[in-house]
Design a protein around this nucleic acid. Structure first.
Lengths: 342, 342
DNA sequence: CTGAAAGCGCTTACAG
DNA sequence: CTGAAAGCGCTTACAG
């Protein structure tokens, strides 16, 4: 009774129906009489039959797969990946599975330009792009993707005139909240570390929130308390060192990412200062590390479950031809020790 | 000239050859005259053509895809994933890509039993199973997989009579090296935290290395210095607390994983003791966190690039019907601050 | 409610 | 070196 690699035809033979009826029954078509359907499904189960995805995909021109393109900006020296992505991955596969989609993983650099290939080769019905970095650099790639009619969602901010759809975090409001929190704790000289250039719109938005909060409190943001740094622990360390050496005093520091914050905290400690007593620190991301550094880092959390849901819902919508809007989710302040609130 | 969704037939028409010749040319068959081949490939490039994977897969009965099944034992309370896996994922996709394979990602629980489906549905040609936990519990699943003729590699130890092939870390030798290191630094009362039961053979093997090293140095391993704990920071904390309270003095601690070590370090600090002065600590895994805790954790590193290579090479071998042997790789001692060597 | 038939786009023996 | 033809295993109009 066992067939090696059963096909719908094998089931049809055993059930005494046509192959077409088997196909219908297995897809729960109401066209098939319930009794027949049950019998067929029973046989399929016994034979350990599963629909051949290649055949079904060829026929329907779908793969029911989403390609997840993760491009991170590790520069070779700093091989650490953005740990926030791990739970992101988890939640994305779950959100996709809930909708009947598999997830194809790729962690190549975005400098290669075979992303289009995923959809063109019918391996994926749509893409999700995850990564931090200089969005201006990607602009061209995104345009190519869009013009190739690729369905894709970008994890990131809503950027004017950027091709495609995105789902991201309300970074401006996140930055604002972080500073509000520090202000409420009585801090007045709040330094900022992060890249505020147009090339990293997410970080620039967090900076904009920083400026708005300070201005709203009647404090003039000072260039002397602002130091640029890309997302790495080492660069955070160096930036903090620079701020400390510049002589302009500050009693709080908002780092545009946790990784930068952690580097900065090390610099502050190396300078013999205490956290949060002398300098309160707030980060952004809530990567797993954040809860484990000492003191534990207060940070703006990006909920990866919500993010994953937004992205997957987006691509699936695009795949199905439904109208999709770019959207933002709200980050949440997680109060730990580094800000001095506890 | 642009065709919406070009097929090999479109190219054939444009090149004035048969569709079969196009197929051959695109696969670089030496059967096709070089001039013809070049012309065809040129046209394919211009049309942005990519072979329809569903059609090719249906014809060849292959998917050129490996499914990566990640099952972790997060108990709901501790949602942190084993961070070691992130770079593992990265290296696995790269190793697979090098061999022309895509990677399908799944992070479902192994308690579901659809893994067989991946191969039966022709979505993947083989599987890689990643996860820590009670291997005895998985035994049944593995047997089912094997009897369904599924090609799979397990990341883990070589277990007697376990179905399938595995690639893992030489945990016994790793444990041995960790203890050797502590002994060389003059520590004599070395505590152990970790699960030594048969259910976690990897951890049990590390314990075996611990015992061998101590015995070799003429030290009788003491049950009073050994405390069981599964892989979590919280459980590591509690286990260390228990050891400290028990009254049996110790000047070093070997934790069977970094996560446990990090929890234990917190307990040691909370007890007012210094690391490494009072108690030296060594972990296992070298997860990204390890370098960032304070003091930085000395640990046995598992090289994820080598691990990924071993696993991918294994499945691909199985897929191609080549003989595959289970194997082990050697972990490497990474000396940081927590052991007191620096 | 069911069946016969077409066709998705490839790869590959077979024939020349 | 090239072409005509079969067939991989489905899904789905079309007909009854």
């Amino acid at each position: 009774m066992k067939v090696e690699n059963p096909t719908s035809r094998d089931i049809a033979d055993l059930a005494g129906v046509s192959q077409a009826t088997v196909s219908r029954a297995l897809r729960n078509s109401p066209l098939v009489r319930e009794e027949t359907r049950g019998r067929i499904q029973q046989i399929a189960r016994e034979l350990n039959y599963f629909v051949n995805r290649n055949a079904a995909g060829l026929r329907t021109q779908q793969s029911n797969t989403i390609a997840l393109l993760l491009f991170d900006e590790t520069d070779g020296t700093d091989k650490r990946m953005n740990l926030f992505f791990m739970s992101f991955l988890d939640n994305i596969t779950r959100a996709a599975a809930r909708r009947g989609y598999d997830v194809l993983l790729s962690l190549q650099q975005l400098t290669d330009d075979w992303h289009i290939e995923y959809q063109a080769s019918h391996r994926a019905d749509g893409l999700i792009l995850l990564g931090y970095g200089d969005y201006l650099e990607y602009r061209e790639k995104l345009t190519a993707l869009a013009s190739a009619n690729t369905r894709f969602m970008i994890w990131g901010p809503i950027v004017k005139d950027q091709p495609g759809h995105s789902f991201g975090c309300n970074n401006e409001h996140g930055g604002f909240q972080a500073i509000q929190h520090l202000l409420q704790l009585g801090r007045r000289q709040i330094a900022f570390i992060g890249n505020t250039s147009r090339g990293s719109p997410e970080h620039a938005a967090r900076y904009a929130g920083y400026v708005r909060a300070l201005t709203g409190a009647g404090i003039e943001p000072s260039d002397d308390l602002c130091c640029a740094a890309d997302n790495s622990e080492t660069l955070g360390y160096e930036a903090a060192q620079q701020l400390l050496r510049s002589g302009t005093p500050f009693d709080a520091l908002f780092a545009v990412t946790d990784l930068i914050a952690i580097g900065a905290m090390r610099a502050i400690k190396d300078a013999g200062l205490r956290i949060p007593e002398d300098i309160a620190v707030v980060g952004f991301d809530d990567m797993p590390l954040a809860a484990h550094v000492s003191p534990a880092l207060t940070t703006m959390q990006q909920n990866s479950r919500i993010a994953a849901e937004g992205l997957v819902k987006g691509v699936v919508g695009l795949i199905k031809g439904e109208p999709v809007e770019s959207a933002l989710m709200e980050p949440e302040l997680i109060v730990r020790e580094s800000c001095g609130a506890k």
